[in-house]
Write a protein that binds this DNA or RNA. Sequence first.
RNA 1: GGGGGCGUAGCUCAAUUGGUUAGAGUGCCACCCUGUCACGGUGGAUGUUGCGGGUUCGAGUCCCGUCGCUCCCGCCA
Length: 595
Amino acid sequence: MHMYRTHNCGEIRKEDIGSEVRLSGWVHRVRDHGGIVFIDLRDHYGLTQVVIDPKMDFYAGADHWRVETVLCFTGEVVARSAETVNEKIATGEVELAARQMEILGPADVLPFQVAVEEQAPEYLRLKYRFLDLRREKLHNNIRLRSEVIFEIRRIMSGEGFLEYQTPILTSSSPEGARDYLVPSRLHPGKFYALPQAPQQFKQLLMVAGFDRYFQIAPCFRDEDARADRSPGEFYQLDMEMSFVTQDDVFGVVERLLHAVFSKFSFKSSDAPPFVRIPYREAVSRYGTDKPDLRNPLHMVDVSEIFRGSEFNAFSSVVAKGGAVKAIAVRNIADSPRSFYDNMIAFAQSVGAKGMAYIIWASGEAKSPIAKFLSKEELDALKAAAEIKDGDVLFFLADKEKNACEIGGHVRTELATRLKLIDESVFRFCWIVDFPMFERDELTGEIVFSHNPFSMPQGGIDDLLGKDPLDILAYQYDIVCNGIELSSGAIRNHRPEIMYKAFEIAGYAKSAVDEKFGGMISAFKLGAPPHGGIAPGIDRIVMLLAGEPNIREVIAFPFNQQAQDLMMNAPSEVESRQLKELHLQVMRKPAEDLLP
RNA sequence: GGGGGCGUAGCUCAAUUGGUUAGAGUGCCACCCUGUCACGGUGGAUGUUGCGGGUUCGAGUCCCGUCGCUCCCGCCA
């Protein structure tokens, strides 16, 4: 018989009755009846009830066994009587009558319970992550993550992609997020950087002729945390394809996401092709470039209706080049006054100067602002927002950018408060036609609005002939339920177009050669047209697991301050190590004064 | 770097709004119990109310500061 187990704790069934088995696992729960003890023994696979009879020589100690101790039991599989069958567990028709017991791993008193899904403080959960990972929810999330990644590899392989590794120690890039730096021992004063993404490497693999690349790629960015953004490191399904158009990339991603989301969730998910929304329309209609399409509300621009209106608060905004955005909500005319007051307070909390509304009920428009509006204006509003009796229209007037942004928040808040969001679906959309450049609000200069390596849609002609702010890029995002899963692009593989694009953003040719010399020289020696995308693995699993926080799908996450409380990272290092790396730590003055 | 929320027993929470000795559940310890499966029962131990000041006859409660966790803004090509 095997030293530790013949079966796992989720395995034995009626068919095994009468056979001698050995099980090892953690003590999940103990039910001590004095004359008989039941122990739920747990492992990765399930639970099995072990019964300890008072006649057994190890019985006396049974009630001292603490939960989460690791035990090994040997004994006979016996049937449970009809009234004692436990239908809640897969092994519930049988139990193990223990004949032998061995303690494999004793456990001290726990900082928090494993068998009970009670809330525990975040710092304890992170410090004792291995305990938290034993708990059902987190354990299942991490298992789901593994299964999702396995499925992704299977599908990508089926689509003709091969997986390649790229360097973890690379060079710092001038664009993008803050880098994590690694000092060089052999080159004093020089640093490696951890990759923010394998962007240039995957493009070089295309130049090298590998045609279709993917990688479950670690990415490192020294940025502050959010609920859906773990600081430090995260994983992307990084992919790149040669000789493709935007539609080819979309096809692969749509097939992949639909398959993965259908397989691992009971929620329904959009079938390909996914909705495509131009960037400017997304901002105008939803107030964001990552709209949650489960939310049925949207904005309409009613600026023209108010141009020259007697309602001065709006007409003056329009006269100054601003916009009036309206959000129609169906069948809420009977809401109490407090609902409108609270919504106005919310709008102000996200930057609105105020928010007007009109209620259509019993064929009449009721509103504090109705008396300023003509019948023609009211009719035009009804038509623009397809208003029916019982509907309410909310208005925000501001500079267009502000009105859209605030309206976006109000749209989300309205849907949340009115419970308009369908929680049973995954709604995907592509955001396309991102602008290539934008004006930096602080400096007034033209800068890249997204990825500098994206191909401008009109190629060199647009770069030469169009207003830079009107140039669109073959740049796209994929969004699911309001969460941005990824950005991608058809790349700019033509050196002359790249030089020109960088020139518009204020970079001299020599600067491009210096920063991206490797890529430029590669593109001068025969580069195929290529493009790709890199959906975030953590966010995909987060959506599938229904978790509101990304830490719940990462086995060993940082806390919000980018610390690992279990491994005690980051930590100080010995002065010898610093010396080897030609580094000197500049401590804060206050710490210098300490003895 | 900035703003909001939270911080009471190992854990989850309460404490009648400033009033006597800070409670309950769970966990822990001891004992009882032969069919439970969140077993049940009896008893017991456990508190620098995050920390430091202040106001007050009196502070878990009010004020100031500080620390920690969290959510958001900035940031994330």
